[in-house]
Design a protein around this nucleic acid. Structure first.
Length: 505
RNA sequence: GGCGCCGUACCCAAGUGGUAAGGGAGCAGUCUGCAAAACUGCGAUGCAGCGGUUCGAACCCGCUCGGCGCCUCCA
């Protein structure tokens, strides 16, 4: 039984969908005028995991995530670059898909752009004007906040309080300072659409009301987004949607906490942000290691989604190390064991305990840290079993267990150790005959090239075979030289009792 | 001025009334030619501080200190 913290009631509530076995959810995506930063990644990831868990739990999920592709920032930047705002938006939507795809974040069922729904927006705005909840001034249309008695329900703010410390410049044409634009008349050179109030473009909040109505209906189950959207964005959405339909809007409001840098919110305005692609290129702790989507996921899920989360190299490194432990085990599980132990019962019991604990944690408002702890517990137990004696089929079974629970978090899906993501797509360096990967200085070969040589799988295998021969001859000196050489390419060897060795990048 | 969040070991982090999960790092040991991995052991009489409620509090209440967010675009 899933419980979610509902911002509307400020309480954890048992999740019950409107229609049995069906979930309709809407999540506010991004305004596409720049590359996404790690904060955007967290939000996208949280709802990706919520969606995965709902599906895993047997719900059919309709998941809508919008792109805001017309707004002041987009127009400004498009003008600076001399391109149309539509083209600029398209470029960053593509980048969004690349970045999120690399993090294993699945696409939504629908990913509408605001400009594809101008007709819906105009229709909804007209409805609000007709109901006298909105008024027209000089081609602008404003929502009249004081006509909607429940305004402030989500953010727990009262109109009087809002006025007191408001930093808003008061537009004299507005009837109340908190009235917000549904439709903005366009200035020359700005993108514009014909409307009953003259050429213009939609305000920010109305697109979400219009598009959720279009794809999910008047009332739907879950509405999500970052904490900072609670006010005014989501408050305004509620006012518009409930005002227009007279029906309940979204039933569960889920908001994720911020990613911070040194305890401060990461944001464009503070300039203290890292884009996702920047992080993927980061590799400060070691020349050979890059950040992968899985490391980023592990890091972001190691804290409950509602809490703030501090981003740092060290935190990323810790996530990497923790993940290493899992993949070390998976490597052991891939190996066969002819003796075949009799420990299936023990294993099943451990897996069962883990599953229960995992489900309990996820049901508790998506407590991913506790869920990961359950998986860590199984890792430790299985390692002990492998040490003792675990049959080949049991190894397969438990690897499957990790894969299936891990899939809810988007972890553990790789077949083999692959922490250096550029390895599978290496080119060849003609001079050295070695394949090349990441752009950093090799500790031995030096920095004459911006590309670091690495070894292909077969090159590694050859050296390992040679080392095995050396070990047979008790030529440990030679064996150590080979190991050192491989290490300089970022390859670590683990000798096994039978004389063979497993290796990893 | 209004609304709200956070403070748990060296680091990250769960736990919201019954006596401190988990991970990372560290140290010691077992195994090993040596490493690596794995395993075993060690690690907060303590949950920012002070008071209160209670048989019992990290968890509830009050105050204080420290950090932060929203009220303007923001995931």
């Amino acid at each position: 039984m899933l419980k979610l913290f509902n911002t509307l009631t400020r309480r954890q509530e048992v999740f019950e969908p409107i229609e049995p076995k069906t979930v309709r959810m809407y999540v506010c995506g991004v305004t596409v005028y720049d590359y996404c930063h790690i904060g955007h990644a967290r939000s996208a990831l949280v709802f990706d995991v919520l969606r995965r868990y709902l599906e895993y739990s047997g719900y059919a999920v309709t998941f809508v995530k919008n792109f805001t592709d017309v707004d002041d920032k987009i127009i400004k930047r498009a003008n600076e670059q001399g391109v149309s705002s539509g083209a600029l938006a398209t470029k960053y939507i593509q980048a969004y898909h690349e970045d999120m795809g690399r993090m294993g974040i699945r696409g939504a069922t629908e990913e509408p752009r605001a400009t594809e729904h101008i007709a819906d927006i105009i229709q909804l705005t007209e409805q609000l004007v007709n109901r006298e909840l909105a008024y027209v001034v000089d081609g602008d249309v404003y929502f009249e906040v004081s006509k909607y008695p429940e305004y402030g329900r989500l953010s727990k703010r009262r109109l009087e309080d809002l006025q007191a410390g408001a930093r808003v410049e008061v537009d004299e044409r507005k009837r109340h300072p908190m009235d917000f634009a549904l439709w903005k008349s366009s200035k020359p050179g700005e993108p514009a659409w014909e409307s009953p109030w003259g050429p213009g473009r939609p305000g920010w909040h109305i697109e979400c009301s219009a598009m959720s109505l279009r794809y999910l209906g008047e009332t739907f189950d879950i509405h999500g987004g970052g904490m900072d959207l609670i006010f005014p964005h989501h408050e305004n959405e509620i006012a518009q949607s409930c005002g227009a339909t007279g029906k309940e809007f979204a039933r569960y409001w889920v908001h994720n906490g911020f990613v911070q840098i040194n305890k401060e919110k990461m944001s464009k305005s503070l300039g203290n942000f890292f884009t996702i692609r920047e992080i993927f290129e980061k590799s400060e702790w070691s020349w050979s290691e890059e950040v992968t989507g899985e490391i980023l996921r592990y890091f972001l899920l190691s804290t409950h989604y509602h809490s703030p989360l501090d981003f740092s190299d060290q935190a990323l490194k810790e996530a990497k190390n923790a993940l290493d432990g899992f993949y070390d085990l998976f490597n052991r599980l891939h190996e066969t064991n002819e003796s075949g132990g009799e420990d299936g019962g023990l294993l099943q019991a451990a897996a069962e305990r883990t599953r229960e604990s995992f489900h309990r944690s996820m049901d508790d408002d998506l407590n991913t840290s506790a869920a990961i702890a359950a998986l860590q517990g199984l890792r430790s137990e299985v390692n002990k079993m492998v040490d003792k004696d675990l049959s080949t089929s049991n190894r397969k079974n438990v690897r499957h267990e990790f894969r299936s629970l891990g899939n809810i978090l988007g972890l553990f899906q790789l077949d083999k150790w692959q922490f250096n993501p550029s390895v599978p797509c290496v080119g060849m360096n003609v001079e050295s005959g070695m394949s090349i990967s990441s752009r950093k200085t090799h500790p031995i070969l030096g920095g004459q090239s911006s590309w670091v040589p690495t070894l292909s799988d077969s090159e590694v295998e050859t050296r390992i075979a040679e080392r095995r021969e050396a070990k047979k001859r008790k030529d440990f000196k030679r064996a150590d030289v080979i190991r050192e050489e491989l290490k300089s390419f970022g390859i670590t060897i683990e000798d096994k009792p039978d004389g063979t060795a497993r290796w990893k990048r």
